[in-house]
Computed example of a mutant assay.
Amino acid sequence: MKQNWQNDREYMSYVEDLINTEEVQSLGEFTQHHYSTRLDHSISVSYLSYRLAKKWKGNARATARAGLLHDLFFYDWRTEDYDGGTHAYVHPRVAVKNAEKLTELSDLERDIIIKHMWLATIAPPRYKESYIVTFVDKYCAVNEVVVPVYRNTLNKVTSLFKVAS
């Protein structure tokens, strides 16, 4: 998914103070969905959610900011233990605590971050923007896992046909 988020002035005006922090940049050190970093994933979720919120007359600023911060946790969820429940339940709460160290969160932004794992957790989102980030997060996760595998498989099949011809 090619996105031109760096050149979108409105989007950057909403997230620039966050995206350049050491905490957010450090997400680039964590693999998220096998083929992407947590930073790349967070930016993808943030930017696509922002665009949808604008289109559907939602709060684009809150959506962009909370989308960027929705996975602001600093552990490898595949290998590290965490107390308090499943990763789907724990990491949004950790992300909110970490986000609150960077910026003041509105009730909307807090709901977006806490509820982005709905369907894997019980409590549904309260706001339209929370639903947007929830479903964009799932869309991006699938894209980050399936598309690289599909491309790799397609390349192998194409190579086999070239050898056979």
Results as ranks from 00 to 15, higher is better:
residue 107 D to R: 09
residue 104 E to D: 12
residue 31 T to C: 13
residue 72 L to G: 08
residue 52 L to R: 00
residue 54 K to L: 11
residue 69 L to I: 06
residue 93 R to A: 03
residue 23 E to K: 15
residue 62 A to S: 15
residue 113 I to R: 02
residue 5 W to S: 00
residue 158 T to I: 10
residue 64 A to W: 05
residue 18 L to A: 09
residue 122 I to R: 15
residue 15 V to C: 05
residue 12 M to A: 02
residue 132 I to Y: 02
residue 64 A to L: 08
residue 159 S to F: 08
residue 67 G to V: 04
residue 71 D to H: 14
residue 41 H to Y: 09
residue 7 N to F: 09
residue 118 W to D: 09
residue 100 E to N: 03
residue 8 D to Q: 07
residue 84 G to N: 12
residue 76 D to M: 10
residue 117 M to N: 15
residue 46 S to K: 04
residue 46 S to C: 08
residue 18 L to K: 04
residue 72 L to M: 11
residue 159 S to E: 14
residue 111 D to Q: 04
residue 144 E to Y: 07
residue 71 D to N: 15
residue 102 L to G: 06
residue 51 R to H: 04
residue 13 S to A: 12
residue 36 S to M: 12
residue 12 M to W: 03
residue 77 W to H: 14
residue 7 N to L: 08
residue 109 E to S: 02
residue 163 V to F: 11
residue 153 T to R: 12
residue 13 S to G: 04
residue 60 A to G: 05
residue 22 E to W: 06
residue 2 K to D: 07
residue 52 L to A: 02
residue 157 V to K: 12
residue 66 A to H: 03
residue 68 L to T: 10
residue 148 P to K: 09
residue 17 D to R: 14
residue 106 S to A: 04
residue 26 S to G: 09
residue 128 K to V: 02
residue 53 A to C: 03
residue 78 R to G: 07
residue 141 A to P: 01
residue 149 V to I: 15
residue 113 I to G: 01
residue 37 T to R: 12
residue 162 K to C: 00
residue 11 Y to T: 02
residue 72 L to V: 10
residue 100 E to C: 01
residue 100 E to M: 12
residue 10 E to V: 07
residue 131 Y to V: 01
residue 40 D to Y: 02
residue 44 S to W: 00
residue 100 E to S: 09
residue 38 R to M: 15
residue 20 N to D: 10
residue 78 R to Y: 13
residue 76 D to P: 11
residue 125 P to K: 01
residue 26 S to Y: 13
residue 117 M to E: 08
residue 17 D to K: 14
residue 63 T to Q: 03
residue 100 E to F: 04
residue 149 V to F: 11
residue 15 V to T: 03
residue 70 H to V: 13
residue 48 L to G: 01
residue 159 S to Q: 14
residue 163 V to P: 00
residue 47 Y to N: 07
residue 98 N to A: 05
residue 119 L to P: 00
residue 146 V to Y: 13
residue 54 K to F: 02
residue 94 V to S: 01
residue 74 F to E: 06
residue 64 A to V: 06
residue 47 Y to D: 01
residue 7 N to C: 01
residue 148 P to N: 11
residue 1 M to Y: 02
residue 122 I to W: 11
residue 147 V to K: 08
residue 84 G to T: 13
residue 31 T to F: 12
residue 134 T to D: 07
residue 37 T to P: 07
residue 113 I to H: 01
residue 50 Y to H: 09
residue 105 L to K: 03
residue 144 E to L: 08
residue 77 W to E: 15
residue 34 H to I: 14
residue 31 T to H: 11
residue 124 P to K: 10
residue 75 Y to I: 15
residue 6 Q to T: 09
residue 115 K to G: 05
residue 154 L to M: 07
residue 59 N to G: 04
residue 79 T to L: 14
residue 101 K to W: 00
residue 118 W to R: 10
residue 127 Y to C: 05
residue 14 Y to N: 07
residue 30 F to G: 09
residue 108 L to D: 04
residue 92 P to C: 03
residue 7 N to W: 05
residue 114 I to G: 00
residue 62 A to C: 08
residue 40 D to A: 08
residue 69 L to H: 03
residue 98 N to H: 12
residue 96 V to A: 06
residue 32 Q to R: 15
residue 27 L to Y: 02
residue 90 V to P: 03
residue 33 H to A: 13
residue 83 D to N: 11
residue 132 I to W: 04
residue 59 N to L: 05
residue 22 E to T: 13
residue 1 M to A: 08
residue 154 L to W: 08
residue 105 L to N: 09
residue 57 K to N: 14
residue 157 V to L: 14
residue 139 Y to K: 00
residue 119 L to T: 14
residue 94 V to N: 05
residue 49 S to W: 00
